[in-house]
Each structure stands twice: as C-alpha cells, then as structure tokens.
C-alpha cells in the first residue's frame, strides 16, 4: 500500500497533535471556526479516537464574526461534546473597539491579538494549536511547526530554534509558550480535497448563495447585521457570493461565485488567479504587516 500526499500530511499532523498532548501540561486548540480549524479539529479527533480530545478548544470572539459562524461553532461544540472556551476582550468591548470606526488595525490588535494574549495568560496555557498554513503568506512560510513565544508572547523571526526531522523542542520556562501549527505543510487545495474526502462540516458561508452586500474600498462586504452603517453612496445589492476565508464580517471580502459545493469550490480554486488572503483587509495595511502582527502575538 502506498500513502498518498494527503495521507502523509494527515499522519504528520496527527503526529504533531499527539506530541503536544504528550509533552505539554496545559495545551489548548485555537478554534477559529474556519475551514482550517475544522480540518484541525477533525485531525485532533482522529488522533485520540476512540477517546475524547484531551485538551480544551478556545475561540477568541471579537464580537464581529458572522452570525452563521457563531451558530456553527455552538452546533459543533454540542454535536461533538467539545470542551470549548469562548473568550472576549471585555476591555475592548467597554471601549467600543470595532472594525468600522476604530479601523481594522486597532480592532484586530485589541480584539484578536490582545484578547488572545489575555486568554492565554488567564488560563496559563503552555501550548496553543493554530490552523495556520505556510502557503498562506510569506512570513508564515518562515515559521517553525513548534514556534516559540517568550513571556510577552512575542515571536522572534530572526532567532527561531532549529527544527530538525520531527524532533520538536518542547522545553519552555514558566510563562513562556509554544504555538503549534499541525497544518503547516498543507496547501489550500489539500485542505479542500481533505474536506471533500472526509466530508468535514463547514460554515455555509464558504458556499455560494445570494447574500446582501455593499461595495466598500473595492471589496464586497456582507451586511450581516445593523451595526454596519450603510453610507449614502452605498446600496445593498443581492449577489451570489461566497467567502474564501472567514473573519470579522466588515473586514472580510466576499467573492462572486457560483460554487455551492465542495467540488465546485475546488474547480473554482483551480481556475482562480487570486490567493485566499486577498480577501482579508488586515494583510494589506502595509508590506510585511503579517510579520509585524505575528511578532506582537497574533496567530
């Protein structure tokens, strides 16, 4: 029997997940509800089958996620009997930090990065799984699978520990932590192929449907609730759209698409000329912005 490319990636990821469960005292899996998180969760379930996943899952809720994402999250948690924590940066809420008037940069920083750091500190997690892939963005392509964070949760890209074979350095001091990326070597197409083969449930937003959108900064933004104030020169259109990545709805661009099944998405992807991160406003702030965010503690 010969293992396919996907089989190899699958076993590699399971190995990584088990390694964390063996070597760390208090790991957590960051669950962002997106497709990569869904695959990661699926792999974690396989890693420990028939037992339950021996660590908690955590969602950093910015309060601006699509409604469908939150519903999906709660359904999945119930269906699989997951140990799910939801953390919201209450300080940010009190200060009315939001993606529209505070701007994407401040909002992401306070409600995502700082919120995550708050939660990691609060629960004293020593390892946190993230669903990031190296093919997403060029600074991610540089990151180790076990990526060290100092006491202030910072990443030092110029001083990463060598990572040979699949021998992972799991030694850390009190207060330090490690971010672990089991999907490092998966590409977007691998993820979709796996979702198809394994029949992994996804938030419906990935699939094309008629949705209310407005056009803003050359992007199509979905009107998910009435917090998105429609400006005078804008009008709500009903468009057949879907999302390639999911985040805070005012910051996530929809793409016009007819793809309403996983098969159709894959075919669309193969013909696409644009990368998935294009749909994210936060990456476009400046050259090297992802690297900066990661240094500050962003996933």
């Amino acid at each position: 029997m010969k293992l396919s490319h996907i089989d190899k990636l699958e076993s590699e990821s399971i190995h990584i997940i088990r390694e964390v469960a063996s070597e760390f005292v208090n790991p957590v899996m960051l669950y962002s509800i997106g497709k990569d998180s869904s695959v990661m969760l699926h792999l974690a379930q396989k890693a420990f089958y028939p037992s339950k996943i021996p660590f908690k899952l955590m969602h950093i809720d910015t309060t601006w996620k699509f409604k469908e994402m939150i519903n999906f999250r709660d359904d999945i948690a119930k269906k699989y009997n997951l140990d799910l924590l939801v953390h919201i940066n209450q300080e940010g809420v009190l200060n009315n930090i939001n993606p529209i008037s505070s701007g994407s940069k401040v909002h992401t920083d306070v409600m995502k990065t700082q919120s995550l750091i708050q939660a990691l500190d609060k629960y004293k997690f020593d390892a946190a799984f993230g669903g990031a892939r190296r093919d997403e963005e060029k600074s991610r392509a540089k990151e180790r699978i076990f990526s060290f964070r100092d006491k202030k949760n910072r990443w030092d890209p110029k001083n990463q520990k060598p990572e040979l074979w699949n021998l992972f350095n799991t030694k850390i001091d009190q207060g330090e932590s490690v971010r672990v990326f089991p999907l490092s070597n998966w590409t977007e197409i691998d993820i979709w192929q796996y979702i198809y083969q394994e029949n992994i449930p996804l938030v419906p937003l990935y699939f094309s449907k008629i949705r209310p959108i407005i056009r803003r900064n050359d992007m199509m933004i979905m009107v998910d609730d009435d917090r998105l104030k429609i400006k005078e020169n804008e009008k709500i259109e009903q468009k057949k759209v879907r999302f390639r990545t999911l985040g805070c709805y005012p910051l996530t661009a929809a793409v016009e698409s007819d793809a309403s099944t996983v098969e159709e998405i894959i075919i669309e992807l193969l013909e696409s000329k644009y990368s998935e991160r294009q749909g994210r406003l936060i990456d476009n702030d400046q050259i090297g912005s992802m690297e900066k965010k990661k240094q500050e503690g962003y996933f």
Partner: peptide
C-alpha cells in the same frame, strides 16, 4: 522576493531562515 518573506531578508537581500514553499 517571493520567497524571502521576512522584512530583514528583503531589506538585506539575503535569506536568513528557511522558507517552505509548495
């Protein structure tokens, strides 16, 4: 520049750390 993903690498025109590409 497609590969040298760190700011310092682009500024100095050299590769500092390994990048994985697919």
């Amino acid at each position: 520049l497609l590969i040298d993903g760190l700011q310092a690498e682009r500024e100095q025109g050299i590769t500092i750390d390994v990048a994985y590409r697919y």
